[in-house]
Design a protein around this nucleic acid. Structure first.
Lengths: 329, 329
DNA sequence: GGCGGAATTGGTATCGTTCACATCATCAGG
DNA sequence: CCTGATGATGTGAACGATACCAATTCCGCC
């Protein structure tokens, strides 16, 4: 195929290849002739052939769980866009389940796809470790959220700071303490939010209520809400994500507890509909897309030594979005 | 690399290749020896080399818009899983914007990735056409939702039937007529829902109120709700998706209109949190993942003539999920 | 005019695999 | 024991690009 272009332009294959790769030592008129030939033939380089000789593909792999959830889905979008901007394609794999074998399968499938590097978007330490171990040794990898020890670089939302901002906000409104509905115990991001919440309360010298554990779903938030509604004296709740906050709102509504008059609620994620819940939800907004971008930058730093700014900041700090679900006590 | 295996197993490259491709004419003990060697060396076939000689990659391309939304994201998941089950990888591209040039760019980028086929998950006729025209001629393609004329096969949710079920449900509850908050005008799926809604009302001999146009977002649903709240005599609203229904609920709540006592609301999509809104939302549940699966089946039918059941049913019929946002009049 | 070094271009091997064809081994039947 | 068919294996070319090295051209300067 490159031969056709070469013939039409009256040069050798090699020269076409040079034009293709923007090698400097090609005379301007030769370059023009080649470019013109490429246009005329609607030539597209065969990336498989190129990958074969270069021993490196133009593909990045992503292993992701929960890829339908707002946070991960947005991160995936960020990864895709950043990768494309650098000339890489992205292939996304989602294990059927959280089982060990399912994860191993997925990693193996990625391994055979000859990717240049891998981003692991997993919420649990164990799963990430499993995935990484199943990858061929030496394949560059970056973790999003959960990184086992410091074996590989990680990019994450600064969950703890996000939680801190949420709690701080509630304390400033005059609440004595803040209850917390957390994500699953085995999820690192969930635990980081718990840690931030607890630390902030302790620093302020407040009592720390027991954690109510959820699983990210609206349903678990609803159950947590029913549980909290039984108790008296609760004035502020920090939910570890907006979906659970949504469930909370529903439970409180059902029990005649008014938000924010009786109880203030803060969520986490700022899903697009957060502003249209009843009442509009005050929440913490993390920039998931930025996380994806940073993950790609970091990964490409590993893949391609010539990459610049390989040392991307590993934390993305979220911000507070004030709406109507919180009020002064 | 295949050579290493061959040497260790004491056979030729060709024999290893035969084992790899499950060619029948290999003696059992030879096969075992080769398989053992492969395991010992942790050999993985180089898919780029294979793709090069076979002139076909093991990759499917997907162009998708709105990949963060629940529906499309779920379809993407279905595509990914179905593809993997058939030994194909998937690369997903999302244009930066809906601009023509952005779409053309995206398609071009896919074209150079040597994919075996393409799934276009686009909501508008125009965008899909643009995307398809930018793809190299002869590349098999399947459209999800929006298919321009009948140039390529399409797989879609049976939107009209979904709408019909929603309207039917409301009419059976005794409502005189049903208002509709639609998706954007240029979206085929939105228009199909409008058509189903209108047809059902007309067949029942009811008056057809004007369509209130939204853009899928909760915000537009909210605005539509405020608008509807101004009018009197409205007892039932069918929103074209759950996010807009959510906005509606909020607007009605704000204006003191009770759901379902004063107005019944039906959504579309059955997002995971639909059951935890205030009140829990009655909605239409389309199986988006199934659409993804069917798209892959259909595409692979085009890519690989040996594929079976190439004639997948092109419509996936949704079902009604009854919750508490609808009541008898 | 001739020389040296840089810029430009071409030739050939190579990446890891499969394909087409050739070869060798095996076995049943006459 | 030979023949022919069939099964099992090996050999060399090809896929489309890049890498490495050699060859040619160009240019400024002595």
């Amino acid at each position: 195929m490159i031969g056709d272009v070469a013939r039409l332009a009256g040069v050798s294959n090699q020269t076409v290849s040079r034009v293709l790769n923007e090698h400097p030592n090609v005379r301007q008129d030769t370059r023009d002739r080649v470019l013109d030939a490429m246009r005329r033939l609607d030539y597209r380089p065969n990336l498989m052939a190129r990958g074969l000789v270069r021993q490196k593909s133009h593909m990045l792999g992503v292993i992701s769980f929960d890829s339908v959830l707002f946070g991960p889905a947005t991160t995936l979008l960020g990864i895709g866009r950043a990768a494309r901007a650098r000339g890489y394609g992205v292939t996304i794999l989602t294990p059927e389940s959280g089982d060990r074998s399912s994860i191993v399968d997925t990693a193996a499938s990625l391994a055979s796809q000859a990717v240049a590097g891998v981003v692991v978007v997993f919420p649990s330490q164990a799963a990430t470790t499993t995935a990484l171990l199943s990858l061929p040794a030496g394949l560059p990898a970056v973790a999003v959220e959960a990184a086992p020890d410091d074996a590989i670089p990680a990019v994450r939302i600064d969950q703890a700071t996000g939680a801190r901002i949420a709690v701080q906000h509630l304390l400033e409104l005059g609440h004595e303490t803040v209850w917390h509905v957390s994500g699953p115990r085995d999820r690192l991001d969930a635990q980081a939010r718990v840690d931030g919440w607890r630390a902030t309360l302790e620093e302020a010298g407040r009592t720390t209520p027991p954690v109510v554990v959820g699983d990210w779903s609206a349903e678990s938030g609803y159950r947590a809400g029913l549980e909290l509604a039984e108790r008296t004296g609760i004035t502020a709740v920090f939910a570890a994500n907006d979906h659970m906050a949504l469930g909370l709102l529903r439970a409180f509504h059902e029990r005649g507890i008014r938000v924010p008059e009786d109880v203030s609620v803060v969520g986490f994620d700022d899903i697009p509909e957060a502003g249209y819940l009843i009442p509009p939800l005050t929440t913490i907004r993390p920039d998931h897309e930025e996380v994806g971008r940073l993950a790609v930058t970091t990964l490409l730093g590993l893949v391609d030594e010539t990459e610049q700014d390989a040392t991307a900041p590993p934390y993305v700090v979220p911000t507070l979005v004030r709406r109507s679900s919180t009020a002064a006590r």
